[in-house]
Every structure is written in structure tokens, then in C-alpha cells.
Design a protein around this nucleic acid. Sequence first.
DNA 1: AAAAGGCATTCTGCATGCAAAAATTGGACC
DNA 2: GGTCCAATTTTTGCATGCAGAATGCCTTTT
Lengths: 227, 227
Amino acid sequence: MQGPSLPKMNATEQAYHIIRNDILTGKLEEGERLTETRLSDDLGLSRTPIREAIGRLTLEGFIERDKGYTTRVAYFPEDEAEQIYEIRRLVECYSVQRAARLATPEDIAKLRAIHTAMKEDTPPKDQAAYQRLAAANEEFHHTIVTAARSPRLTALMATALDVSMVVRTYSMFSQKDLQRSLNHHEEIIQAIEAGAAEWASSIMSAHLLAGAARVVENIAKTAQEKE
Amino acid sequence: MQGPSLPKMNATEQAYHIIRNDILTGKLEEGERLTETRLSDDLGLSRTPIREAIGRLTLEGFIERDKGYTTRVAYFPEDEAEQIYEIRRLVECYSVQRAARLATPEDIAKLRAIHTAMKEDTPPKDQAAYQRLAAANEEFHHTIVTAARSPRLTALMATALDVSMVVRTYSMFSQKDLQRSLNHHEEIIQAIEAGAAEWASSIMSAHLLAGAARVVENIAKTAQEKE
DNA sequence: AAAAGGCATTCTGCATGCAAAAATTGGACC
DNA sequence: GGTCCAATTTTTGCATGCAGAATGCCTTTT
């Protein structure tokens, strides 16, 4: 499931993505102890990039360190996804308000371009189209945060709120969901273009609440099937 | 100005704090190029801890990386402090709402303890008392975020929103400001204890807006004096 | 059987070496 | 004077070595 056409990645980034992915898919279990040695053996890399990846994942809250040499996969609360969506709603609604005031024509053009590409992939014909949609969606949201012109905000989203994997793991959005999502995006762009901060914020809020509801539902369904 | 009684810090943490401090005090100027070699010479450490410190500061937005080997001190927007306070308000108001619902008796006891200690240092007799107050204030806010029982939230605050240095650089709070701040803290604790989420959120909002106003004023004054 | 203590093993933090990539310099050419 | 290109130097990314700290095992004791 490691994407087929990764762009060139250096060892540290590889380590970061692989470990993160393994945590989110459960291949590395919650609370499991991690050692640099084992990981570097498993991934065929030296300890240095592993160290750096672990450092980053620790900052992001995926990995926890005890007092001594003990490093464990973090324990995630059951309502992890809801928590993240709530925080995203907080941050992204604020972002889109700023974006409505501060977005440049280039920002808006970029949003339009992403949106157009997403429309062309809907409904998704195959798995690849699905992947593209997910990536484009991430970029759409990221573009809005960037358009808010607050470096702190950007760092925030990049660091602690990237739910892509969580969502990707659980999500099977129906065609109806996708269409609604696209409509939201369309309306968000219009609101930004109009400089209507509150409008933009409201529709973003709805967008994320809808997304959260879908994800929570999917998680529940998945859990049920396991029994 | 490097605190006199640092607890034992490993090399990486030392590097992190020194570099960060040097950026925030302007000893390392905005846009200045940084190389691991020079920093490791300057700090008398090897490249490894420097590397790790730089990595973290990059994630936090204090340092920026261009395409190649070029690493620079980030350019900070003029309204940096306001931006941070706005984001803090977003995050901490949400945190304190959760805290009002989820705080344990231990959390509340800790808040009370910090609060008591702060009262005993007010008004601050000397520079050391001032430092203690600043540290205690940070801990107060951090405790609230922790009490929100959302690891993501905690990571967020730790990573991107630590304004202590910015504030410390510019702040000369008057006795009246300090007293008001303490009153806010007191009321926040009461609201949390009462489980009153909205109350807690409102007073926290006022608390941070007041703080922001003071800081902005101080920055303006400082800028004026420079002319 | 449980607890305590000492010993061997493992792990991390830091330093350093090396090759490849990037930046800089200097010179040729326009 | 400005621009392009190649040689040189610098810098990073990664691998590895080493000492000290932490962990876990195994024996001893109660």
C-alpha cells in the first residue's frame, strides 16, 4: 500500500512515512516499544534517519518517550478521529476567514485548478483516481491554510493535524458524499473570492462536520464487522 | 541571559534552546543563513545535536529550508505576536472548554498550586521573581491544555505556539496587569471547577485578548523608542 | 514464591567519516 | 559591465563507532 509513484524521497522522509504509516495501520501496535536498532534493521536504513523520523513523530504525538530509553507507539484515544476533526474545524475555519481577507488571485486560481482536477476524477474510476482525489483534497485544504498568510498556522497544520492516513484507512466515501464535498469546495472558493469571511467559515465548518460524521460512521461500521 | 540554573540538559536540547533564543532575541537575524558547521563550532557541539535542533525548529517555523542546502532564519511577519495570540485564543479557549468537562481533581489541585505560587511572587521583588512568574504562567496554561485530555491539542501547543520568548522579550507588565492576570487565572480555575465550559472559555478569551493588547502596546512603544 | 541486588546486554546520545549534492568562485566570452 | 560555464569548496545526508546510561535477566535471599 506504499504509493506506487513516490517522488524521490530521502532516507529520513522514507523512514518517517513508513513508520507513520505502520503506526496508523496498526502494523506497529499501540504501546509497542520501538528501538532505533530494530527499526533500522527492518527498514534497511542506518540509525540516523530513523532517529530523525522518530524525533518528528514524537513531536507530532504519534510516539511517546518515557524517562529512560523507552520509546513506545502512542496510545490513541478511541475518539481520535473526532478530536482531530474538531481541532481541524477550529483551525481551518479561522484559516478560511483569514484567507477570505488575504487570498491572492494566485491562491484562488490554485484552488480553482485543484477543484477542476477533482471534478474530472469524480466519480473515481479506479483506485488510482481515489488516491488522486485524496491527495487533491489534502492540497485544497493546505492551500487555504497557506492563503491565510500566517506561518504559525501553516506549521500547525503540517505538524499535528495531518489526518490523511487515518481518514484514508477508514474511508469509503460514497458518490453522494463526494459530490457534496465538491459542492462545499466550490462554495468555499466562491466565499473566499467574495471576501466573505463568515460565509467561508460557516461552509468550512459544515464541510468538516460532514466529513467527521462520515468517518465516525465508517469507523463504527468497521468495528462492528470485526466482531 | 541564558538562565542561570538550567536543569541538566542534553546537547540537543541545549542547542535547541540556544538557537531558538538567539533567533528570538535577534542575535541570529531574520533571513540569515545557518549552517550546521558554523553552529556546531559556535556552540561547541558536534553536528548531530545541531541537526536535531534545526529539524525541530524547522517544524516549528523558526527556521526555513530552501530547495538545496540553504537554511535560513525565518522571516517573521510584523504582527507575529498578534497572530500567535489569536491562534492561542482559538486553541486555548477550546482547551479550557474541554478541561471544564474533563479535568481531574489532580489537574485542579495543580492549577491551584501554581496559582498560589504566583500570588506569593506578586508583586515581583526582583528579576528572579519575574522569571518565576513567567515560567509559572506558562505552566498554568500548559496544565489547562493537558487537562483537555487531547494529545493532539497538547502536541499543538508544544510545537508551534510557545510564545514565551517573544513575550518575555517585550514584556514589562505593570503591577495592575499582573493583578488582572492573576484574577483571570483565579476565575478560570473556578470555572473549570464548576464544569462551566462557556464561562471558562469566555474568561480565557478575555485573558488572552488582554495579554495580546499589552504585548502589542509594548512592541509599539519599543519600536518608537528605537527611532 | 516474591523481592532484591548485581551483572551482562542493549540502547541511546553524541562524535566523526565519507560520498554526493549544492553553492561559490573565477575566468572566458559576449 | 554582464552572463554563462566549469572547477573548487562547502555543506548536507547518511553510516558507523564509542562511551555511558538504562534495561532486563539471573542469582541469591527471605
